[in-house]
């Protein structure tokens, strides 16, 4: 990927700012998401809460399903490849979708290496729990970051933890004298040049969305007020009682996140949200956020 292509890929993510990216498992869902005002859809076979329930190895979705969803909507289509599975990424690039999510929601294919994203022309979004993880992914060529949260739980607590961690580490970087950056970068695994850039910009150099556990309009507005540029909603929409209404409500609350009256209005009469899971009830080996490094 040359510099110009990379910038175009960062810029597509800039177009998504203030919007909601929704997980969809078929063309019908994709249409509902688009009509509700999603800025992009994530095409996959099972939403994270089903992956969690059913267990087994979760892989890239059937290309036929992704192609069908791509035919159905005019908004950007994203799809997930397993961490480190560069051949799944090659297939998705050949399929000409708009963005690849190298995702911890799928079972990792490589426990040492993430995909070398600089080899691709297609953009990648990657998950992060802290600034170090975000900057390592950017160094590998990611054009967009999402905080990981804990997918498929309907519980926003991990998403909050991750964005707060990223923000705290950025504030520390911004406030420290430059000679302290080397040690701070070493201790936290930051690529040094990117740490300097973050220190200068006062934020990540690419768009950062929230993900993992967002289930209500209030959750979405919370993540926006905490400084995210937009939100991913996975199981939160199509595992809820009334997906179309909830999808539109989350779109409204994301756009008007600073206006409690509008978030209130969006929160009324949506039916029940997806059932949530307490994080401490999840066995440690089933925590998704710790996949990748």
């Amino acid at each position: 990927m040359d510099r110009e292509r990379y910038e175009l890929n960062v810029q597509l993510a800039q177009m998504l700012k203030g919007g909601v990216i929704m997980d969809v498992v078929n063309a019908e869902h994709a249409k509902i998401a688009e009509e509700a005002g999603a800025v992009a859809v994530m095409a996959l076979e099972r939403v994270p809460s089903d992956i969690r329930k059913e267990g087994g190895v979760a892989r890239m979705s059937d290309p036929a399903l992704i192609a069908e969803i791509k035919e159905t909507v005019s908004i950007p289509v994203m799809a997930k490849a397993r961490i480190g599975h560069f051949v799944e990424a090659q297939i998705l690039e050949t399929l000409k979708i708009d963005y690849i999510d190298e995702s911890e929601v799928l079972t990792p294919a490589d426990e040492e290496c993430h995909i070398d994203k600089t080899k691709f022309a297609i953009p990648f979004v990657c998950g992060a729990r802290n600034l170090g993880e975000a900057l390592r992914r950017i160094a590998e060529g990611a054009a967009m970051i999402r905080t990981k949260g804990e997918a498929g739980t309907g519980n926003v607590v991990e998403a909050v933890r991750h964005i707060r961690t990223v923000n705290r580490e950025i504030r520390q970087l911004v406030n420290m004298p430059v000679e302290e950056v080397t040690g701070f970068a070493k201790a936290n695994g930051f690529p040094y040049e990117l740490a300097l850039q973050v220190r200068e910009l006062g934020r990540l150099p690419v768009v950062n969305f929230a993900a993992g556990g967002i289930a209500t309009p209030a959750d979405a507005a919370l993540m926006m007020q905490l400084g995210c540029d937009g939100v991913f909603v996975g199981s939160g929409i199509f595992k809820a009682e009334n997906p179309a209404r909830r999808a539109e409500a989350i779109v409204k609350a994301t756009a008007y996140y600073n206006d409690p009256a509008k978030v209130l209005e969006a929160s009324i009469g949506l039916g029940s949200a997806m059932p949530g899971i307490e994080i401490s009830d999840i066995p440690e080996n089933q925590i998704l956020a710790t996949r990748g490094w």
Binding site: M15, E35, V251, A255
Partner: peptide
């Protein structure tokens, strides 16, 4: 601005 036209048109109408 640039963005997604379906999203923008939805929000323009709703509010």
């Amino acid at each position: 601005p640039g963005g997604e036209s379906t999203c923008l048109s939805r929000l323009l109408n709703i509010f």
